[in-house]
Design a protein around this nucleic acid. Structure first.
Lengths: 167, 167
DNA sequence: AGCGACAATGAGAATCATTCTCAAAATGAC
DNA sequence: GTCATTTTGAGAATGATTCTCATTGTCGCT
């Protein structure tokens, strides 16, 4: 083989398993090391799928795209959530979704959750909103004794597809 | 019986099932009528429990306090969510929770979700934050084609009890 | 008061996502 | 290489939620 192989040919050979970016690898390794966890091929595959998803994915989506067995995906996701590398996102329905934790991803963002098909998309908040949220959230501990770890700001409704299809 | 019965005695006979307030009944009836649903004793009991809970309750909590069979509670909650009378709240774990929808409850509020024990408490946002959120959310449709129905602003962390017990 | 149509109920079966189990395979240290 | 440890994976076990369907309750009508 490989006679007149082009880049496209190579890409066609591996349509599914995406590759984990070097930057993410560098960021993730120390976090895993803290827990004495290795960056195994499977974990790498799961992270790669999440990184390339650019939106929270269901466990099934991760399993399908990473070609890792379901039971292993469940375990790996749980471990990664534990290690703080992955965030669990409560979607509309059809099971929880996961995405790279913000510290390992590009930026702070929020979610548009479609209550019809359950898909979740990322969207960026304005800095002004974030500043106000942070201020507000900071006051909670004093007022209620509740120890804040982070906040979730989701917007629910119908995604463009469901809105145009539905009515 | 009923010889020297006092109010306290009567109360002791029905410690659990709370009563649905007249205001809520008035607000809920038209919403049910739209769906040709009746305000049956069971539905009334479920709503009463939610109204008196003052925080999102799990299905089991509702079943236990309303003395309505579990399978019926599931169906009733689903119907009421459908009718827009009840809101489903994604808690930390241990199943979804439900509370009266904002339109039928006292006010707009958000949630403090304890990631340790899963309990969810209501808290009030500041008007300034709400105004900014509304403005921001209003811009989403134009920018993304996403048809917003409402927003969810949850704060996650450890409740006072778990924080003091845990460490 | 009686009837008929339909809404509501509930006990248990069925389903579905998630977790657990445990033996086999991979890895890293020496 | 060899050992100790971590990771994996197929399937069983669990637990929450949904479904089924025969029974019961309710409303409108007479």
């Amino acid at each position: 083989m490989r006679t007149g192989g082009t880049l496209a040919d190579v890409a066609a050979d591996q349509p599914h398993p995406p590759v984990l970016s070097a930057g993410t690898v560098a960021a993730v390794l120390p976090a895993l090391a803290l827990r004495e966890m290795r960056l195994t091929p499977h974990r790498r595959a799961v992270l790669a799928v999440l990184e390339h998803g650019h939106r929270p994915l269901t466990t099934d989506e991760v399993a399908a795209e990473s070609a890792v067995p379901v039971s292993t995906v469940y375990r790996i996701l749980a471990e990664l959530v534990d290690a703080g590398v992955v965030a669990r996102v409560a979607g509309a329905a059809g099971g929880d979704r996961h995405e790279l934790a913000e510290a390992f991803s590009d930026h702070h963002h929020h979610h548009l959750v479609c209550t019809e098909c359950g898909i979740v998309t990322d969207f960026d908040p304005s800095p002004a909103l974030e500043r106000l949220i942070d201020k507000e959230v900071g006051a909670i501990l004093g007022a209620t004794g509740f120890e804040v770890s982070h906040h979730v700001f989701d917007v629910r409704g119908r995604c463009r597809d469901c809105a145009s299809a539905g009515a």
